[in-house]
Structure formats: C-alpha cells, structure tokens
C-alpha cells in the first residue's frame, strides 16, 4: 500500500551506527524503498555525483566528521533541490534553527519509528508532486 502515485522515492541514508543503519535498511527495503546507506559525511560526498539519482537524503545530525546540516549544504552543491531530513535525539534549539535555515530541509526527533518517517516523506513529496 504505497501512499504515492509514483514509485516510492529513492533514499540516501547517512547513519554512523552500523547496527541501526542495517536495521533501517532492512525496514525500508521491506517497504520497497530503494535505499543507499552511508556512515560518514565524507563517504557520501565521495559519491556526490550519484546524489542526483536519489530523491531524498536522510541524515543523522551528529556524524563523526560533520554535522547533518552542514552535510546537506554540501550536498546542495551537487543537487540543489534535493529535499533532506535531519534526525536527532537532541532537542536543542540551535539544531532546529540550523535546519530551518536550509530550504527543503526537515527535522525528525529520535527515537522514531517507521510511521514517523513515512509521514514526513509523504509531506515532502506531496508538495513536489503538485
């Protein structure tokens, strides 16, 4: 039961916790999402040229080498309009502010479940499908 008329969006996931990344990947793929996982910002940026092939980037805020917002800014150099979601467990204001400043960038708070993610995705892509 896809909530989308088109095929489900392809996702880039950036998560440094290997276990968590693995679980997410399993979950998304179960739901027929195409998903690629990266563990560090640098890792993703090395594959920057492929970003355009994806529909969205979901990244942790706290990454080993860069924070998620910065990473999105970087990505935007290669794919200026790709939407993004930042995941964080911290409710700090500054993170919220940072995300707001970047267009097409959304925030989700951990711990989260699949439903939260799907909801957000629908929200993002309903805009774009218009």
């Amino acid at each position: 039961m896809s909530a989308y008329e088109k095929s489900p969006p392809s996702i880039i996931l950036v998560e440094d916790d290997h276990s968590l990344a693995r679980v997410w990947k399993t979950l998304f793929e179960m739901l027929d999402y195409k998903i690629s996982c990266f563990h560090t910002g640098l890792d993703l940026l090395r594959h920057a040229h492929e970003i355009g092939n994806y529909d969205i980037v979901i990244t942790d805020y706290y990454l080993p080498d860069i924070n998620g917002v910065e990473l999105i800014k970087e990505i935007r150099e290669h794919a200026p309009s790709i939407p993004a979601i930042v995941l964080t467990g911290s409710h700090e204001e500054f993170i919220k502010d940072a995300v707001k400043k970047v267009s097409g960038c959304h925030i989700l708070y951990k711990p989260l479940n699949m439903a939260d993610i799907e909801e957000k995705l629908a929200e993002i892509f309903s805009h774009t499908s218009e």
Binding site: D17, S19, L20, V23, W24, T26, L27, M30, L31, G89, K110, P111, L112, N113, M114, A115
Partner: peptide, 21 residues
Amino acid sequence: INTPLNVITANTDILQRAVKM
C-alpha cells in the same frame, strides 16, 4: 543507552510492518 534502544524500536517496527505486509 539511546542508541541500542533505537535499534530495538527499529527492529520492533520491522516486525510489525512485516506482519502487516
């Protein structure tokens, strides 16, 4: 503790969805 908890919840999510699907 947070991180393992995330993994646990994710896994439960997987299980639930799997059943549903």
